[in-house]
Design a protein around this nucleic acid. Sequence first.
DNA 1: TAATACATTATATTTATTCTAAACTGTTGA
DNA 2: TCAACAGTTTAGAATAAATATAATGTATTA
Lengths: 142, 142
Amino acid sequence: MAYAEQYIDKLRKSGLRPTKQRIKICKVLFNTDKTFHFTIKELVKIIENQANIKVSLATVYNTVHAFIKKGYLKEIPLNASQSYYDTNVTHHHHFFDEEENRLIDIHQDDVDEVNIKKTIPGKKIKSVEVIAKIVSDNQSQK
Amino acid sequence: MAYAEQYIDKLRKSGLRPTKQRIKICKVLFNTDKTFHFTIKELVKIIENQANIKVSLATVYNTVHAFIKKGYLKEIPLNASQSYYDTNVTHHHHFFDEEENRLIDIHQDDVDEVNIKKTIPGKKIKSVEVIAKIVSDNQSQK
DNA sequence: TAATACATTATATTTATTCTAAACTGTTGA
DNA sequence: TCAACAGTTTAGAATAAATATAATGTATTA
């Protein structure tokens, strides 16, 4: 219960009332130091496995989107059939393994600062993400 | 008709028979020096406006995917409800304007080479893409 | 604690994409 | 050249993620 206040705080700051369902979602997303990637489907599955309360898809979508808006979650830019989300909101990048449909973090320190010389009038950069697609290295092409 | 052979060549190299419909798709995609971004919906609309032949959605999807596989088109990694494709297959990057749902090319020279120090055993990097999200700069936050 | 505003849910809807199967067409080889 | 075959096109159905709806439930407030 000690953690519940953190969650309530996060929810209120996101403009959401702390309800049983939302606190459960928070527990799954934020009760560990480890960050992770997930799809909505996976998140629902984790909740189902852990909880004795039911959470509908709509609530999960709404809550995840509110957290993204507030910056507690990030959406990972990836052209996939489902959206991928990340509990790691620090500045970092990703490998995407298309063969195994797997996302792997790349720490900010492992990529030199991405410096973009081009600017768009009236616009500022909000975020910069690097996606490196990886495939099996069969040594065939040297 | 001088161009048709180019298109037939592209199609054959993609493992596709040159049919009326596919040649039409090639004309829309490759008959200009200018590169552009498109969604399937937009591509269908352009074809409709130009052609007196009909091309079904399924054919457009199949052909676009064959071209991507062959490297004549690129998919732009973007978590959007529709997939975005690019006729510019050279190495370059993108701004994505979330407010206007607009993609803008960033020439390779405008971004320093992205050097990733991390490696994944048994895997090699196939491609590296930078997505910079931009928003209105209201000068409000200095 | 009553009134209100916000939440939750099951279900329906929307929309991009993929699948299907029947009709059609390019290709090949005799 | 033409028959046979393999690949293609198409309309429409199927799938699946995401969003909308509207009735019921719950947190908040005064």
